[in-house]
Structures are given as structure tokens and as C-alpha cells.
Write a protein that binds this DNA or RNA. Structure first.
Length: 422
RNA sequence: GGAGAGGUGGUCGAGUCUGGCUAAAGGCGCGGCACUCGAAAUGCCGAGUUCUCGCAAGAGAACCGUGGGUUCGAAUCCCACCCUCUCCGCCA
């Protein structure tokens, strides 16, 4: 709010860059003025009431009459009540508007309206030339008996997958491989959080109020199924004040993720690219503000190592203002080469949220004992999405006879198995 | 699910019956100072958060799990909800 008061133009520019039109800033500013005016009046009346109440207490103790003062305070209290009502009303409107204002993009981020304006910053590996007709994972998987789409549809519906035998094993191997890599080589702490979270956590991570339709809401308890481990993990320290000496926190978390994919009807309907449920190994960091951009580059590197060890060709994009999302200040996407798409498919996105989530979730740190609490910065990145990696391995490592070679790095996690065949 | 107990500051813990003098005793922990060659022990002093007004010094308001209510006035009384603990039942 302070930023909006002092630099409304900057916020307006940011909203324009992200294509957000939800909030009328001038309206918001005028509510703010009203709020401060009524608040002043309210506080003055409360102060009056407080002193009078003390006086009443004193008089009663001394046996002096206080009826006339009490009568007067009745009036004052009534006014206080009315003013409290109006401030509360204004606060709610202001709060609601504030929650719908997007994060301000970092100055480095390219301006743009859509994914066409994203900038490719890196390409690693070369897509293999097969020398035969490469086939999609949604054919190879069922043929090998390692993916079962039909029965998944029977059991749950569309956009669900059943992995079987070597498919399930491959997925489990990937999870363990990624976790071990980030824990042992990159120094992350492993976290296994709840899959159901309360509304406050969704708000804190910036999923609400804007993206309520994308989440699954469970039961009458107001539990949301997590769309990513980012939600529980960035909320772990909600409303705590962390000593700066403890930072950065680096967490790696494997969870299933659940998404309604409400806006994606008809897209990626074949295969296991876009699912209501998928597995993901997620990286989350809490840093002090000066360190967050260096941490972003490091985290991006950590995600890249996964793909490099698996020897899967990928590219890295920096997302433009219009495509990067509501809560992020700067975001990279990693995209894997997917033969069936004859193109790249997102496998990881690594973002700096600066203090956007920290403000919502009230995540603070203290530089030293005397210092005032400040908001810290949060980052997260996929390290990486498991289901899509399974699909990419099947497609990129397929052989002419329809079998799948298992990447070297995964074999220790597959009891040495080198090939999946019928 | 049944029965009971409880949620107070960094932490432990009083205060709640009997509403006002309570930002809230006391202990521990923390910071500073004194004593000491240094340390321990001891003594003294100091530390909450958010918001509003103000250039500032400062003034004021709110906060005792959350939200309502009663009252001139609520940590304290009433209602609802959330959470924790103990016992019983059920359960992977």
C-alpha cells in the first residue's frame, strides 16, 4: 500500500505490463484517504473514551457520582461503533483490491504480451535424429504396458494416468534421483508437507484470490489440494520472524500436485503432459532481499543439472512481463525437447517472488537483535516435474523396436536396469 | 466420535472466580553497564508487534488462539469457531 501511495505510476505500469485490469488504482487511493480520515476520528474518540473510563473507575472507587459521565460515554461508544463499522468496511475493500494487484516485474524482464515475446537465453543438448519414425509416449507407454490411460479414465476420469511396472518404477527412480541430487549436492533440506492446505496458505502463496478456479477444494473444511509443494513450504514459516543468520533456507520437497486445469480444456489432451495429478520435486528458498537474484540464478542451475544428468535436450527462456504470471517478479522456464510435439515442453519454472509472497504470508526476518523486522524474499522452482520427465525419457530414449533405454544416471535407482522392453 | 483440561510476551508462568489502577507480576533466556586480569556469580538498567498523525522529538490507537456479543470500560463475563493436551472408542 505504501508503494501505491508513493509511486502509483510505477504500479500502474507494472499492471499494464502484466495485462492486469482488475483493480482501479485511483479508486483504491481514494478509499485509502477515506480510511485514514475515519481512522483518525475513530482513534480520537477511543482515546477520549479511555480517559473517561479511567475517570469513571476513579470516581466509583472514591464514591463520587459518575452517572452523567457514563451517559456521555454511551454516546461516544455508539459513535465509535459506527466508525469501526465504516473503517472495517473500507479495510475490506482495500485489502481485496491489494490482493489483486500483481507483483512488479524486475527491470530486466522483457516487456511483452504473450509467450511469443519470451526470450530464449540458452539451449543445451541436441535433439536426437532417430533414423526412424519417433513415436509419442502415449503410444509407446501403453504398448510397453507401463502407462495405462484407459483404466485411469475408468477409475478417475480424463487427465489421469496409471503408471505400471517399469513406468511406476521409472517415476519413483526419478523422484529419488532428483531428491538425492538436491539434498546431497545442492544442500537443500528435505521437506514432506501436507497435500491439503487451508485458505490462508493459498492466499499466502498468491494462489488466491485470483486462481481459485484452478485449485481443487475439498469438503466443507475449506481445504485446498496443493497445486504445488510451493504452497505448504512457503507457508511453513508464516508470521514468523527469522534471524538473518539462519537464512537462506533451502527446501526440496517431493509431492503430488493437483490442478483443475480449468482454463485448459482441449489442450494437451493426449498423453501425460497435462494432468489433474502429477508428481513434482520442488525447490523453495527464503533469502534476504539482496541475495534473491543471485539465488535465482543458482536455483535455475540446480534445475538444469537434473536435465543435464539425464542427458535430455532443453532450452531456457526468460519469461516476458505478459506471460510470467501474477506473483512473480522474474521467471525462467526450462523446456524439454519432446519429439511428439516436435518442440519444447515446459518442465520447470524458476521464479523470484521478491517480497510478494512474504507480504501475504507475513514472512519476516531480522538483520540483528535491534533491527526492525523486514519482509524476506522467496523463490521457487521445479526441480523438476516428474510426469513430464517420464514422458520425455520415453520419447527421447526410444529405440526402433519400441523399447526404452534408461538414462545412465537413473540406473542405480532402477536396480541396474538398462532397458524397458515388452 | 465420547469425556475432560487448556491456549497470555523469546520461553515458562501468574492474572480470569470478585471487569477499571495490566502492555500485562515473577522466573528463565536475551542486550547493555558495573564488579573482575578475564570468566562465573552478583547488582543495576533495557528490550514486543502493527497502524495513524508528525520533518522530527513525540502523541495516540489496536493487539492476551480467531471472530462476534454484553458493558461507560473486557485478558477477565457470554456465544460460536480453530488449535493443543489427557483418557476412552475406532482406524492405516
Amino acid at each position: 500500500m505504501q508503494l501505491i501511495r508513493s509511486e502509483p505510476e510505477k504500479v500502474k505500469d507494472a499492471m499494464a505490463a502484466k495485462g492486469e485490469t482488475d483493480v482501479d488504482l485511483d479508486q483504491l487511493l481514494s478509499w485509502d484517504v477515506d480510511w485514514r480520515e475515519t481512522l483518525q476520528e475513530l482513534e480520537q474518540l477511543r482515546a477520549e473514551r479511555n480517559t473517561a473510563s479511567k475517570e469513571i473507575g476513579r470516581r466509583k472507587a472514591a464514591g463520587e457520582p459518575a452517572d452523567e459521565l457514563i451517559q456521555r460515554m454511551k454516546q461516544v461508544s455508539q459513535k465509535v461503533g459506527a466508525l469501526e463499522e465504516t473503517t472495517r468496511h473500507l479495510e475490506q475493500k482495500i485489502e481485496d483490491a491489494l490482493l489483486r494487484i500483481p507483483n512488479i516485474p524486475h527491470p530486466d524482464v522483457p516487456l511483452g504480451a504473450s509467450e511469443d515475446d519470451n526470450v530464449e537465453v540458452k539451449r543445451w543438448g541436441t535433439p536426437r535424429s532417430f533414423g526412424f519414425d519417433a513415436r509419442p509416449h502415449w503410444e509407446l507407454g501403453p504398448e510397453l504396458g507401463i502407462i495405462d490411460f484407459e483404466r485411469a479414465a475408468r477409475v478417475a476420469g480424463s487427465r489421469f494416468t496409471i503408471l505400471r511396472r517399469a513406468g511406476a518404477h521409472l517415476s519413483r527412480a526419478l523422484i529419488n534421483f532428483m531428491l538425492d541430487l538436491h539434498i546431497e549436492e545442492h544442500g537443500y533440506e528435505e521437506v514432506y508437507p501436507p497435500y491439503l492446505v487451508n485458505r490462508e496458505s493459498m492466499l499466502g502463496a498468491g494462489q488466491l484470490p485470483k486462481f481459485e478456479d484452478d485449485a481443487f477444494l475439498v469438503g466443507k473444511q475449506d481445504y485446498f489440494m496443493i497445486p504445488t509443494a510451493e504452497v505448504p513450504v512457503t507457508n511453513m514459516y508464516r508470521s514468523e520472524i527469522i534471524p538473518a543468520a539462519n537464512l537462506p533456507y533451502k527446501f526440496v520437497s517431493y509431492t503430488a500436485c493437483f490442478r483443475a486445469e480449468a482454463g485448459a480444456a482441449g489442450r494437451d489432451t493426449r498423453g501425460m503432459i497435462r494432468q489433474h495429478q502429477f508428481d513434482k520435486v520442488e525447490l523453495v528458498m527464503y533469502t534476504i532481499p539482496e541475495h534473491s537474484y543471485a539465488a535465482l540464478e543458482k536455483m535455475l542451475g540446480h534445475a538444469e543439472v537434473v536435465l543435464q544428468r539425464l542427458e535430455l535436450p532443453y532450452r531456457c527462456l526468460i519469461m516476458c512481463t505478459g506471460d510470467m504470471g501474477f506473483a512473480q517478479a522474474k521467471k525462467y522456464d526450462l523446456e524439454l525437447w519432446m519429439p511428439s510435439y516436435d518442440g519444447f515442453v515446459e518442465i520447470s519454472s524458476v521464479s523470484n517472488f521478491e517480497d510478494f509472497q512474504a507480504r501475504r504470508a507475513n514472512l519476516r526476518f531480522r538483520r540483528d537483535r535491534e533491527a526492525k523486522p523486514e519482509f524476506l524474499h522467496t523463490l521457487n522452482g521445479s526441480g523438476v516435474a516428474v510426469g513430464r520427465t517420464v514422458a520425455a525419457i520415453i520419447e527421447n530414449y526410444q529405440e526402433k523396436d519400441g523399447s526404452i533405454t534408461i538414462p545412465q544416471a537413473l540406473r542405480p535407482y532402477m536396480r541396474g536396469q538398462a532397458r524397458i522392453s515388452i
